[in-house]
Nucleic acid binder design. Structure first.
Length: 565
RNA sequence: CGGGAUGUGGCUCAGCUUGGUAGAGCGCAGCGUUCGGGACGCUGAGGCCGCCGGUUCAAAUCCGGCCAUCCCGACCA
């Protein structure tokens, strides 16, 4: 492609509304333009990158035996009402009404639609089946952010598998896991696979593919020793509460004037923060939940929600406390608490003689012990794992935290959707059975941003070859006939084996160099003054900035050698 | 939705405190000189100062409302 014939509007300044590197570079290099918050145009050169990622994904899905189809983005409300997600999805769903007042949404995901299609699989003999599509998804994010990293319209590859048995699902799940690993590797990115929370999609087994980058919105907790890795939302650790093995003493109520914070209270009573147990009041639906965790640890609301088997919990607000005058903010405790489910962190089992609120202004109980003083309705791991704590799997490795960008997520769904939507096949005994399902998503547009986030320098983007918009950036710096002709010839030759961007513009060299580094194609070939003198061109490797002078005749050998290592 | 900030040619911004002629750099067009890391000179085009209303002889500037955009939190590919 001749530069003069394409359209790559590059910018000198960072756009004012971009915060992170990948977003700034995507706009500056002319890949992306904003239409509205979280809604973007993929410019010609950006689209080339997107298509390359799509094609890698497509190849790997096809190799894994998946079938590509294309479902509509526009979906009728009825389907979503069958699965109850018309309500559960809430504000995040883009909804619209047609001229006949029929309700629709723009699909945030396609479990319902694909399940309705899968109903045409009637026999176990036709299982398993895995379908996928690459298509725009719509989610009315509370806060779109960071360009296409978190946008409201984005390109996703979503796949859905249907099975007769759990074993079959396991097999496909493993296959998809391998395919996903290959996709991220082929895109040239370093990543980690982590245990994940199911979220709104649901399901018991779920893993995320995280591209490692400081600008990532997620924190990956991992163990260098055994390779354990999990999203901070679900990560667990081994840590020890103090006060184990102490002789249990009798509970006592003490006066603690204005000491409602953990810090103040620990100081006032002269005890470690681990011995103060905080009681946090949450609501979920109409019910009230009291969550007990050691004062030194942060509660993880995701874990609380899954311990309760609900989608979401929210902390009591001022208004909630006003409605429950029996719950006294700052002095809440499990003893004598009415009409609230008590969920306690597992660590409290090995903690004795701790402190809790007395449900009375300015009072706490000391020397509290589980079993003798109160009992929990649910025991669970409720706290965030922290850096430096011992690994839950191997016991002796230390946990570390790194930031990552979630580019893929795979789930085992079980019969969650097939049961709601009554999707069945007939088994070998002639009986109807619900499909067992899995689903597998890759953020294709996000992958592009993640790649830039991981690979850039102060000059611009450094594309991995597999997803670069072109392979070679050829530029002609000469103005004389001979140089022009030579550059044209080199361009035509290179086209046989490469995708070439040929900067044929009549501009000063500085502009061409700067644009080339900003665009970040892996290899630059420069036809300049050495051509007139010695019939030589210069090859520059974008990543290393290293330059090599090469005779024109040897150019193709050189490029072949470059490809091979 | 809560907290913070911003809106002025295509882009990045100044001007607003103290009301009175709309500015700079870059980009764009033309001419000339340059030509290996965003060259230079001259000339020129381009702006309902986010929108609506108010105050005033007079509003980019002061006041009110709305809208849009960005950042921090809950959401997630």
């Amino acid at each position: 492609m001749r530069y003069s014939k394409t359209f790559i509007p590059t910018l000198r300044d960072d756009p004012a509304d971009a915060e992170i590197t990948s977003h700034k570079l995507m706009v500056r290099a002319g890949l992306l333009r904003k239409a509205a918050s979280g809604v973007y145009t993929w410019m010609p050169i950006g689209l080339r990158v997107l298509r390359k990622v799509e094609n890698i994904v497509r190849e790997e899905m096809d190799n894994a035996g998946c079938l590509e189809l294309l479902m509509p983005a526009l979906q009728p409300a009825e389907l979503w009402k069958q699965s109850d997600r018309w309500f559960a999805y809430g504000e995040e769903m883009m909804r619209l009404v047609d001229r006949h007042q029929r309700e629709f949404c723009l699909g945030p995901t396609h479990e319902e639609l694909i399940t309705s299609i899968a109903k045409e699989i009637h026999s176990y003999k036709d299982l398993p089946k895995c379908f996928y599509q690459i298509q725009a998804k719509y989610r009315d994010e509370i806060r779109p952010r960071f360009g296409v990293m978190r946008s409201r319209e984005f390109i996703m590859k979503d796949a859905y598998s249907f099975h007769a048995t759990q074993e079959s699902l396991d097999e496909t799940y493993q296959l998809m896991q391998k395919a996903y690993a290959r996709i991220v590797e082929r895109c040239g990115l370093s990543y980690r696979v982590v245990k994940a929370a199911g979220g709104l999609i649901g399901g018991a087994v779920s893993e995320e593919f995280m591209v490692l980058a400081d600008a990532g919105e997620d924190v990956v907790v991992h163990c260098e020793n055994c390779g354990y890795a999990a999203n901070l939302e679900t990560a667990s650790s081994k840590w020890h509460a103090s006060g184990e093995n102490e002789a249990r003493e009798a509970r006592k109520k003490v006066h603690t004037p204005n000491k409602s914070s953990i810090n103040d209270l620990a100081q006032f009573l002269d005890i470690p923060k681990t011995s103060v147990v905080k009681t946090l009041i949450y609501k979920t639906g109409d019910s009230t939940v009291a969550a007990l965790v050691p004062g030194s640890k942060e509660i993880n609301p995701h874990k609380l929600a899954s311990a309760l088997g609900v989608g979401e919990v929210s902390l009591f607000s001022k208004e909630d406390f006003e409605k429950r005058p029996d719950i006294i903010q700052g002095f809440v405790g499990p003893i004598g608490l009415m009409n609230a489910k008590i969920v306690a962190d597992n660590s409290l089992r090995s903690l004795s003689n701790f402190v809790v609120g007395a449900n009375e202004v300015d009072h706490h109980f000391v020397n509290v012990n589980t079993e003798s003083d109160f009992s929990a309705d649910v025991w669970a791991d409720l706290v965030f794992a922290e850096e430096g704590e011992a690994c839950i799997d191997c016991d002796h490795g230390q946990l570390e935290g790194v930031r990552g960008i979630e580019v893929g997520h795979i789930f085992q769904l079980g019969t969650k959707y097939s049961s709601k939507m009554d999707a069945k096949y007939v088994d070998d005994a002639g009986r109807e059975q619900l499909f067992i399902m899995g689903c597998y998503g890759i953020g294709v547009s996000r992958m592009v941003a993640a790649a830039i986030e991981q690979r850039n320098d102060e000059r611009g983007i450094i594309w991995p070859k597999a997803i670069a918009p072109f392979d070679i950036h050829l530029m002609n710096l000469t103005k004389d006939e001979a140089g022009l002709k030579a550059a044209d010839e080199i361009y035509n030759q290179l086209l046989d084996k490469n995708e070439v961007l040929y900067d044929d513009r009549l501009l000063s060299p500085g502009i061409k160099f700067t644009d080339a580094d900003l665009l970040g194609l892996p290899v630059q070939i420069i036809v300049g003054k050495k051509f007139a003198e010695k019939k030589m061109v210069e090859i520059k490797i974008r990543e290393t900035q290293k330059r090599y002078d090469v005779e024109v005749d040897k150019l193709s050998d050189w490029l072949t050698a470059l490809d091979e290592n």
